[in-house]
Simulated assay, not measured.
Amino acid sequence: MNPRDWQEVIGTAGIFGTVFVVVTIAVWNMAATWRAKAVLARDYEYRTLAEQATRHQGAIEQRLIAIDEHLADLRTRVHSVERVLKEIE
Rank of each mutant, 00 (worst) to 15 (best):
I88K: 11
I88W: 05
T24A: 15
T48F: 01
N29M: 12
A50R: 08
L85T: 05
R75H: 13
A50M: 07
V78A: 14
I60H: 04
T12A: 07
L74K: 07
R75Y: 14
T18D: 10
D68N: 07
E61Q: 13
V78S: 09
A53C: 10
E87Q: 05
T48D: 02
Y44E: 15
R35D: 01
L71P: 01
W6G: 08
E61G: 14
M30A: 14
A50Y: 05
A59N: 13
V78C: 02
R63H: 05
V27Y: 10
G17R: 04
R55Q: 14
L49N: 05
A66M: 03
E61F: 08
A59I: 14
D73K: 13
G17I: 01
N2Q: 09
L49P: 00
R83D: 15
H56V: 12
Y44C: 13
T54S: 12
A59R: 14
E89V: 11
G11H: 11
Q52W: 06
G14D: 02
I10T: 10
T12W: 06
E87V: 00
N29S: 13
K86W: 03
Q52F: 08
R63P: 00
E8Y: 09
T24G: 15
A36L: 11
W28R: 14
L49G: 03
D43C: 04
V9F: 06
A66D: 10
N2M: 07
M1G: 12
M30R: 08
M30L: 10
R35H: 05
I15G: 00
F20T: 12
V84E: 09
I65Y: 02
A32T: 03
R4Y: 13
F16K: 09
T18Q: 11
S80C: 05
H70D: 09
Q57G: 09
E82D: 09
D5Q: 11
E87L: 02
R42G: 00
P3T: 04
V22E: 10
R55C: 09
R4T: 13
H56P: 03
P3N: 05
G17Q: 03
T12D: 02
A32E: 08
T33H: 03
T33G: 07
E51R: 11
A31S: 15
L49M: 09
K86Y: 06
